[in-house]
Amino acid sequence: MHELRIAEDLSAIVLDTALRNNLSKVTKVNISFGQLIQIVPAIFEFAFRETVRNSVAGSAELDIEIVPVKMKCMNCGSDFQVNENLFACNICSSTDLGIIQGKELFIKSIEGE
């Protein structure tokens, strides 16, 4: 369900950027979603289609990059990727961690003419 709201905010940014750059057609939208966000790409794609229908982005391709979760250990300083929800340092086992990536809901760029 939250896919719809996020798609609405995304299409507002896309259409606004297209307008300000005089694009008559948006061909591609490049976004990245962190794994923690639990977005289902197929549902998101569907929601996005609905929100841009009959606009300059109506036929834009959506490129969704899923970003794995990476943390930094505050104890020993190492970086590691979180697998199977294990939020503990793979070197020293510390659970004092900072997030590096994995919570993104990010628009990188749009392409068009």
């Binding site: 996020i6 905010d9 995304l10 940014i13 950027t17 750059n21 694009l23 976004i31 809901l105 990010f106 628009i107 990188k108 760029s109 749009i110 392409e111 068009g112 003419e113």
Partner: peptide, 12 residues
């Protein structure tokens, strides 16, 4: 033409 945006979708 590619236009860089680089921002959080839920900025608002």
């Amino acid at each position: 033409m590619e236009i860089k945006i680089m921002k959080n979708i839920l900025d608002r």
